[in-house]
Design a protein around this nucleic acid. Sequence first.
DNA 1: ATAAAAATCCCGAAAATGGGGGATTGGCTG
DNA 2: CAGCCAATCCCCCATTTTCGGGATTTTTAT
Lengths: 205, 205
Amino acid sequence: MATKVFIVDDHYMVIEGIRSLLQNDAEIKWLGHASNAASCLAFIQSNPPDVILMDINLPDKSGIDLCKEVREKYPQTFVIGLSTFNQFSFIEKMLQYGASGYLLKNADRSEILQAISTVMRGQQYLSSDASQTVKHAKAETVTMLTRREKEVLALIAEGLTNAEIAESIFVSVSTVDTHRKNLLQKLHAKNTAALVKLAIDQGLL
Amino acid sequence: MATKVFIVDDHYMVIEGIRSLLQNDAEIKWLGHASNAASCLAFIQSNPPDVILMDINLPDKSGIDLCKEVREKYPQTFVIGLSTFNQFSFIEKMLQYGASGYLLKNADRSEILQAISTVMRGQQYLSSDASQTVKHAKAETVTMLTRREKEVLALIAEGLTNAEIAESIFVSVSTVDTHRKNLLQKLHAKNTAALVKLAIDQGLL
DNA sequence: ATAAAAATCCCGAAAATGGGGGATTGGCTG
DNA sequence: CAGCCAATCCCCCATTTTCGGGATTTTTAT
């Protein structure tokens, strides 16, 4: 059965471009388009699509909020983020709010089809540029640890207590404690055990 | 300068065997032998050797205790354990109590010389059989974790607290606590951080 | 030069861990 | 059957970490 696709974007050219790219594909059923969040919501209420290609910059509401709302109301509808910006913060937020994929507007026909079929299989699709960005951003998270934090991290993994670490790097326990807190935050770890695991997973130890 | 070697063993054949193997070597000065711990201690008091080849089974005292005593009183004297038993628990204890090496009684001339020169350089020498055993034993330590312990270990690494783990595997916190303590012991970890690191290093996670 | 980031320090309370114990049950094995 | 081991549970108590704040001083980068 053909996948029902809908698009929300305030740039007419983009809508037309994608329509012409997809309309003759047997696997795709073109449901229509909207140029703002409100009309998008109105439309999909009566015609739930399988996939929404969703611009991140909408006139009345950010695509990120719209994504969240759609996903809450129509969990069976997949959202693919669409934007000219290959920025990690956007990609991250879209995915966080339930988007299944992310495309840049320079995507060609095959990439769009690929993205649609991938998310329809329940998997996540990121354009190669986007996944590069995500990778970089994550690599940055890795190197985002400061010199001191890395030192402390290594010593924690050795099994030293804060007091011991403090002695060994000649600072007060308070300082080590702060570094530790920052490490937990930066690596999104709940506690020391998870911290060490994540650090090793990310090649920090 | 020739290395002064002394031997303690209650089997005369072994003493003779080693003596004949070593006596014509320019690098070795044969100090003598004892057949029990007491006479060994008496001898070395006046003639401190560089290396003692020490049997693990002595009539008056275990080689393990003797090793400990010798190392405490004569730290400049290296001890090489000697036995027919290739048992990890023996090897482990000897090394723990300060032995620098471990030989099996089927060692040939070159291996004995090798062992002596290695420990004289301050390094540790294990016969290939013994080091195999140590390796195996360590590998066993890995699999020596019980089913439950492995479960708990995995959950600890996920960052769950004891209480959360207890809930998730339907046992009391006390049980989890016990498993955790056993894990720390078995992996020789000082605390959770070290535990996770060691576990990952050993391929347990 | 000035703002941002990193590194340093402190307090205090709640939560979790670490290190001793000890005890019971059920299975398996010599 | 007796002994061992895994798994379960409990107590006590000291130490350590975690989680809230703040706060100050260096560095670093623009």
